[in-house]
Design a protein around this nucleic acid. Structure first.
Length: 375
RNA sequence: GGGGAGAUACCAAAGCGGUCAACUGGGGCAGACUGUAAAUCUGCUGGCGAAUGCCUUCGUAGGUUCGAAUCCUGCUCUCCCCA
């Protein structure tokens, strides 16, 4: 299922291929986030043709609430429903348990929460979130976890990790006791938690490694902690997670975060930043980060990004995109999202090439300066 | 020609004796956003100053008052109705 093709000699970076029945995924990989069965504002066609996405995300919480499992089942799963033939990974809803926290109650059994749509009460358990993901038919399912907030004291983090581990055992049991509904294999990734506490992260990484799943995830990071804390935590966890399985760093991050994590042995990433920030006017380009809403771009008719990760990057000018975004035009969101995602995907693809060529560290150092520059 | 209404900051629009450098929208300027309740949210928006603050503003010229965007008079302009 996961084959490592090349290891970097200077860092812990590796280039591999993650195979699913919906296609092979060269790693490192960035996975566009498509929470509600859509990567906001982007046609499936463009995900393939402009962005070259190899896998996208869906979200159990959102799809469960709308359109609901009954429709998802009638549709024959999410792939068919949204007309997407490539792999899909679904988050379990663990993050929503955290981000929608005013509406939730956690106990041993699961997470009791109120729908943000109509206020109705629902219960997520380790078991039913696997069941729902069976119906959704994601190639990679995630266990239900609790993503602890930052800052968070050791006592709370410890309790949270214990709960997540308890849920992990139950999710794995349900996973092993059930079969896919749609005729192709599904795998389940457990999630390491533990805040920024090294002892908890070690315990959690050992627990997750012991589950023996096909891949493993690191959660609970990029929730507000300093980047250095995140990098240190990744190092500790990746020292324990099996090296022959893919490692997925959930919800990360900035282009620099991603390169740093790749250098520490992470293979998979997802983040709303390229799409959400793109819609809000933040563009990641080969020239640096720009806020397209700023007045200085109003008469700049140069391409959005001359390096052209996608066709929209060179076809449209900064001034035109600024006009669209400032006017609230839908096309502005679409162009920004396509460009940003193409930029992210292209960056990670380049990282892979550099790992294979054995030049990753040098390349990363020269890229990092450019990637953090704000124009 | 007769009768009526009104002129407030970039625009629209509140305020109708002191708590007004002036509500609120819009526009403008900037910021935030990391497993998407986000095409969202926040701040600033007369001048100078880091700031207590100081200076100049509510069509215009006077006046009343301790004090006026708010009251009175003249002027200018705009809009509506009837001829």
């Amino acid at each position: 299922m996961f084959r490592i093709e090349s290891r970097d000699k200077d860092t812990n970076a590796r280039a591999g291929v993650l195979s699913t029945e919906h296609g092979d995924i060269p790693t490192p990989v960035f996975m566009p986030v498509g929470t509600g069965g859509t990567v906001k504002g982007i046609l499936q066609r463009d995900l393939v043709e402009e962005i070259d996405a190899k896998i996208i995300l869906g979200n159990t919480y959102h799809l469960y609430l709308r359109p609901g499992t009954s429709i998802m089942k009638s549709a024959g799963g999410l792939h068919k429903f949204m007309s997407w033939d490539l792999p899909i990974l679904t988050d379990s809803g663990g993050y929503q348990v955290f981000s929608l926290s005013p509406n939730r109650k956690l106990n041993d059994n699961g997470a009791l929460f109120r729908s943000h749509i109509d206020g109705s009460e629902h219960l997520f358990t380790p078991e039913n979130t696997v069941d729902i993901q069976r119906i959704i038919g994601s190639d990679i399912m995630m266990v239900l976890d609790e993503c602890a907030p930052y800052p968070c004291d050791h006592k709370y983090a410890k309790k949270s990790v214990a709960l997540t581990h308890h849920w992990l055992d139950r999710a794995v049991e349900r996973y092993r006791g059930t079969d896919p509904l749609w005729g192709y294999n599904q795998v389940l990734f457990p999630i390491v938690q533990g805040g920024i506490f090294d002892d908890l992260r070690k315990i959690s990484a050992e627990k997750v490694a012991g589950a023996g799943m096909e891949g493993n995830a690191i959660g609970g990071l990029s929730v507000g902690e300093p980047a250095e804390e995140m990098y240190r935590t990744i190092e500790i966890v990746n020292g324990i997670l099996p090296g022959d399985k893919p490692r997925y760093l959930m919800g990360v991050g900035t282009p620099v975060n991603i390169l740093e994590a790749i250098g520490r042995g992470v293979d998979m990433f997802d983040c709303v930043m390229p799409t959400r920030n793109g819609r809000n006017g933040m563009l990641f380009t080969s020239e640096g980060i720009i806020n397209i809403k700023n007045n200085r771009w109003s008469a700049d008719f140069s391409p959005i990004d001359p390096a052209g990760p996608s066709s929209v990057s060179t076809r449209y000018s900064k001034a035109y995109l600024r006009h669209l975004i400032i006017s609230g035009e839908i096309l502005g969101s679409q162009i920004s999202s396509i460009h940003n995602l193409a930029f992210y995907l292209s960056l990670v693809r380049q990282a892979r090439e550099q790992i294979v060529k054995g030049n990753f560290r040098t390349w990363k150092e020269s890229m990092t300066r450019k990637l953090s520059e704000r124009l």
